[in-house]
């Protein structure tokens, strides 16, 4: 809009506002990160009484903090399952939604409901349904299902956006060259959609990994990591709380970084192959 014009005072005002927002967004997290390296005698707030990794060690060795290792394992497993199922189911559903079929409208609205109904209510519904059916609640059954009610609608919406830029004549060209449905999917559709599918996978994993409201009532006897952490917030009054925050955020950032890097690498590779 302002191409070629000098930046006015409006720009600097808005830039300052944006900067403040970014500080607002990241400042507290940075604080947690710093405080997690609090000295052995340090408390929940500044000042730092020395710098140590004591609280990380405490977290790993002490049993006071609940079943953090188990929670982490379960959360990662659930995240991976959600990743795979969300990617596969959203891919095919997205492909289906390109055409008209009976029930497309109601299914779309039910998916949106799944997104906007307060998570804990859906969790309550699922847990009650399981109990009425005489099924036991467990993180791997009712828990996984509850996670998917959160990740699938997101996956579907992302697939809509990704498929918006997908030209159906690519698939027709593949069929025209003699490819059957499976070959078309494997050799044309999936490779072209791949960066978008990574985005779906990223959402699938991280949304599941951080999920809490839906999990709370459906997880059964063994908790996921966010529930373990939220229990800690009620009971733990040492910087170990921040240490777990630093660790789990680092894991989230690692997943995000890996996803972005792999998307970038795929695109780079396509470009590089083009340059040779």
């Amino acid at each position: 809009m302002a191409q070629g014009q000098k930046r006015g005072p409006g720009f600097y005002l808005l830039a300052a506002f944006f900067t403040l927002f970014v500080i607002f967004l990241y400042g507290p997290m940075l604080m947690i990160f710093i405080l997690s390296f609090q000295g052995t005698t340090g408390g929940l707030t500044l000042p730092m009484r020395g710098v140590s990794v004591h609280w990380f060690g405490d977290l790993l060795t002490s049993t006071r903090y609940g079943d953090l290792g188990g929670g982490l394992t379960r959360s990662i497993l659930l995240g991976l399952l959600a990743l795979v199922l969300t990617t596969v189911i959203s891919l095919f559903a997205g492909l289906a939604f390109r055409r008209r079929f009976v029930g497309a409208g109601p299914l779309f609205y039910l998916s949106i409901i799944s997104l906007v109904v307060p998570g804990i209510l859906l969790g309550l519904g699922i847990s009650q349904m399981f109990q009425l059916l005489g099924l036991r609640l467990s993180w791997l059954t009712s828990g996984l299902v509850a996670h998917l009610t959160w990740t699938l609608p997101f996956g579907l919406l992302i697939m809509f956006a990704v498929l918006n830029r997908f030209d159906t004549s690519w698939e027709e060209a593949a069929r025209d060259a003699g490819a059957r449905a499976w070959a078309t999917l494997r050799l044309v559709t999936i490779p072209i959609l791949f960066p978008g599918l990574i985005a779906v996978a990223l959402f699938g994993f991280t949304l599941s990994y951080d999920e809490m409201p839906r999990t709370l009532l459906t997880v059964g006897g063994k908790n996921t990591l966010p529930i373990e952490i939220s229990n800690m917030t009620m009971t733990v009054t040492t910087p170990a709380l921040y240490a777990i925050g630093t660790l789990t955020s680092a894991l989230s950032f690692a997943v995000i970084a890996i996803s972005f890097i792999s998307i970038a690498v795929i695109q780079k590779r396509r470009e590089r192959r083009a340059e040779d």
Binding site: L107, I126, M129, A146
Partner: peptide
Amino acid sequence: SGGGTRLVPYLQVAPLALFTIAFVGIPIMT
């Protein structure tokens, strides 16, 4: 496109549809 593919979208959307009905629709009814 043709090719007797009328059924294809139903097969493709079946997992999502079954899941959403079973674990969103029915829980809310519950």
